[in-house]
Structures are given as C-alpha cells and as structure tokens.
C-alpha cells in the first residue's frame, strides 16, 4: 500500500476520438501543495473528476488517501473537498444557505467546521444573507472554498480556482492556500497561470492529456537544455522577427518587456551566445540591444517541453 495522499498510475481516459488523458502517473504526498499546471485542454479537469470518483478511468488505477477511486468511491467522497472549475454554488441560495447545505450533505454543521473555514469565511460573513448570484467573483471563490472545506476533508481538490481572477486576488488566494496547508491539509490544485507554479511545493506540467515533467518549481528551470539569453531593445516586434532568423536560433519569444532567445547549441556558454547575438543584431541594424544570460523560468521550460506540432510559430 502506498502512503501517498494521491497515487496515480498509468491513468488514461478517452471521450470518443479525444484522448483526454494518456498514461498519467504521479504521487502527491500527505500535507503537500501539489500543482497541475497547464492550459485549457491539458486534461486537468478530467483528472480531477477521476480522482474525485465522478469519472471512471479507461486505463490505469488511482488511489486517494489509500482508497481506490473505483472500488472505494463512497469512502473517498466523504473525505475529499472538491471545488470544481465552474461555479459550484447555488445562485438562488444565500451565502449562509449554501454553506449549511454543503455541511448537511456531509452530515455535519457549519459550527463543527467553523474554526477551519473561519479565516476565509469571515471575509464574506457580513454578506451571509446575500444570494450567491449577487456576489463578486472574488467573494464567490471564497464561498466555494468554504463550502469545500466545511466537512473538514483530509484532502482538497481545487480545479482552476483562480481562472479569470485578477493578479492581486490570485495572490491573496494563494496566501489562503498556504495557511490551509500549514494545518496539515493535502491540497491538489490546477491552474493555467504558469507564475502560480512557484507557489506550489511540487508541480506537474500538463499539456494535451500528458504530464510533461514533475518537479519542485525551483528546479524546473534548471533542467532547461539549451543556452538562454534575454534581449531588450527598441522596435521589439522587428527585433523579434530578425532574431528568429539568426543562424543558431532555436526559439525566440516575447517575455514581458524582454525577448527570450534560445540558442540551438547545447552546452555553449551563454556569455558567448550573448556576444555573438549582439554582433548579429548590430549587423541587422539593431545597435542598442542589451543581451544578458538568464536562468529559464517555468514558462520557458513549459514551451520547450510542449509537443512539436504546436511549436511552429505562425
């Protein structure tokens, strides 16, 4: 028996012609904040639905808290908290009614779960008589999280809790997840925002139904296989097009105010790449460029790991 909080082995799931999950395997440890990071269509929601016993896998097996997702579904359901990506609340019930409904489904009361949800629920408690429909996006999110927690689950599954939420609210939400993790709760959370990977203990990068890599977020960039430099200069769009034509260009993409240039010669000193590229840019009429060697971030790594067909720039 595995003592992992979640153990997934070779899980596959197909919908008609679409292979939603292909040979997915990973383990999340007890007390870990584990992230599934990837764009829409990566298979994150399908994986959550398998793990929360709402979908049967076509292949492979998975356990949650040591319980099999197919055989032990009722035991699992009592012990997990699940916040689906789409709005999970009843819009025509009030804030308090939603919370007591979710408590009663699990045979408990708001009072019994109160100390656990208090840090989150207190922020919306003054609106307890308001219909859930009339809440702002951030408030709905806090209520949905409270509802997923009210029965004191041993593990929490959060499917894209921050999608469509502004950068400040997203950061506050992650602060709350860290507080919950301190209490010993295992949390599996998905997100399409690559920067949020940094807030997880470990992340699985997902794309097209497959896991590309699993690592602590700080280590993902260190596996980047090629020399990488950041370029800044005027007339960015033309500079970008020009750098793509450099003799050893592997990939060139905009990153905020910079361009990231990956050279196709593995093992070459990035300083050398920078000086070579500076000469090239000057030759193309870009005199004022600034080029520095940099460490790869999550997004650099994700793009490098993405399967080839999508990799052709338009």
């Amino acid at each position: 028996m595995s003592n992992a909080a979640v153990a997934v082995r070779g899980v596959g799931k197909r919908f008609g012609e679409t292979e939603a999950l292909t040979d997915v395997s990973f383990e999340a440890r007890h007390g870990e904040l584990f992230g599934l990071v990837g764009p829409d269509g990566a298979g994150k929601t399908t994986l959550f639905r398998v793990l929360t016993t709402f979908l049967l896998p076509d292949a492979g097996s998975a356990t949650v808290l040591g319980l099999d997702v197919v055989r032990d579904l009722w035991a699992i359901r009592a012990r997990v908290g699940y916040m689906p990506g789409r709005f999970s609340l009843y819009g025509d019930l009030t804030v308090a009614e939603n919370l007591s409904f979710f408590a009663s489904v699990f045979g408990t009361t708001i009072e019994e779960g109160y100390d656990l949800i208090a840090p989150i629920y207190r922020q919306i408690e003054s609106f307890s008589g308001r219909r859930a429909d009339a809440l702002s996006g951030g408030m709905k999110q806090k209520l949905a999280l409270s509802c997923a927690l009210v029965h004191r689950p041993d593990i929490l599954f959060l499917d894209e809790p921050t999608t469509g939420v502004d950068a400040v609210s997203r950061s506050e939400f992650w602060d709350q997840l860290h507080t919950l993790r301190e209490s010993g709760l295992t949390i599996v959370v998905s997100t399409p925002y690559m920067d949020e990977a940094m807030r997880c203990d470990r992340v699985a990068l997902m794309q097209g139904g497959r896991i590309l890599e699993i690592d602590p977020p700080g280590e993902i960039g260190s596996r980047y296989p090629l020399p990488l430099v950041a370029v800044t200069g005027a007339d960015r769009y033309r500079l970008l097009l020009s750098l793509r034509k450099a003799p050893h260009a592997h990939a060139v993409y905009p990153f905020g105010s910079e361009l990231h240039y990956t050279d196709n010669r593995a093992g070459l000193d990035p300083g050398e790449v920078a000086s070579e590229l500076r000469d090239y840019a000057r030759g193309q009429g870009f005199g004022d460029v600034e080029i520095t060697a940099i460490a790869a971030g999550i997004e650099d790594s994700f793009m490098e790991l993405m399967p080839a067909p999508v990799q052709r720039a338009s």
Binding site: G38, G164, P192, F302, M303, M306, V310, A313
Partner: peptide, 23 residues
C-alpha cells in the same frame, strides 16, 4: 481577455497577430 487559459506558445502567437494587425 483574448488569451485566458491559452497555452504559453499560442498566447505569444496571438500577440504576434495583434502586432501584425497594428502594423
């Protein structure tokens, strides 16, 4: 919010379409 939920490569390709339109 044209790029919400889109993968990082497509997000950048989308911006190249924006630049081309602006040009």
């Amino acid at each position: 919010e044209p790029t919400g939920g889109v993968d990082p490569i497509t997000r950048r390709q989308f911006w190249e379409l924006i630049y081309a339109a602006a040009e």
